[in-house]
């Protein structure tokens, strides 16, 4: 057979092969995406607890995974993202185990559901309850945080605390690190951040304004220990720790 014919046929075969390869990869990826979307939908009810960034206040038991440190990052951060994955598949189990745990912890007010759902060996998040966990929580209470004086939010309750990282955005939209359901809060309402060691509150052009000790914040204001921050129907007290 002529060499050129072999080469030409081979060339077409090779091209067809590479296209088939690409098609296989496409099919695989799309199948993967579909499976992921399906899983996401089945997990949708569990998503509500995703913005659990607050610590339950004293004397309150709430059967909901509260991850205190999650506030330091945006919503899809490690603990917050993986937490529903852990809890959703074993949702009833988690509810069942966490409710008594929470009521047991009673007055001490530790967020009971910190406990991982029992059969989750592969999930890296939900840390096993360590002995020094309590001490850690204590340390967090001494760290700078917001104390909820009055809540216009569905999930925040008076007496809760919200730990503050270097920058915490507050607003109604999901992209905020502290997302409030309060309808008088703008979707991008305020930012509390550290600058040169000073804790500042910046208003991000909210409709109804942010008030510190009753005065409307013009652009930015330095926070001091004990300041009362009001936005919408929610009132926080800033505690430097």
């Amino acid at each position: 057979m002529d060499l050129t014919i072999v080469l030409t046929i081979g060339k077409y075969a090779l091209l067809a092969g590479i296209y088939a390869f690409v098609l296989l990869v496409f099919r695989g990826i799309i199948g993967h995406l579909v499976a992921e979307a399906r899983r996401e939908r089945s997990e949708a009810p569990a998503r509500r607890s995703r913005r659990a960034v607050v610590q339950a206040g004293p004397g309150r038991d709430r059967p909901q995974p509260a991850k205190p440190r999650a506030v330091s990052e945006k919503a899809p951060s490690a603990p917050a993202e993986a937490a529903p994955g852990a809890s959703s598949l074993t949702e009833p189990a988690a509810r069942a185990t966490s409710a008594p745990a929470a009521s047991l912890s009673g007055p001490s007010g530790r967020p009971g559901p910190e406990m991982p759902a029992p059969p989750a060996p592969d999930v890296p998040v939900a840390p096993a309850p360590e002995p020094d966990k309590v001490r850690e929580d204590e340390a967090e209470r001494r760290a700078p945080h917001l104390y909820v004086v009055e809540s216009g939010d569905e999930e925040l309750t008076d007496g809760d605390t919200v730990p503050l990282s270097a920058a915490v955005t507050i607003g109604r939209s999901e992209e905020n690190s502290l997302c409030l359901t309060d309808r008088f809060v703008s979707s991008r309402h305020a930012l509390i951040c550290l600058r040169d060691g000073r804790r500042l509150l910046l208003d991000r052009g909210s409709t109804n304004g942010t008030f510190v000790n009753g005065e409307r914040v013009d652009e930015e204001v330095e926070l001091e220990d004990g300041d009362r921050i009001a936005l919408g129907n929610t009132v926080f007290q800033y505690r430097a720790g």
């Binding site: 072999v6 060339k11 090779l14 092969g17 390869f21 296989l24």
Partner: peptide
């Protein structure tokens, strides 16, 4: 699959 493709291509190059 990639082995097959590149192996086939290699044979073509050798023949050519």
């Amino acid at each position: 699959f990639a082995t097959l493709l590149i192996g086939g291509g290699g044979v073509l190059v050798c023949i050519g």
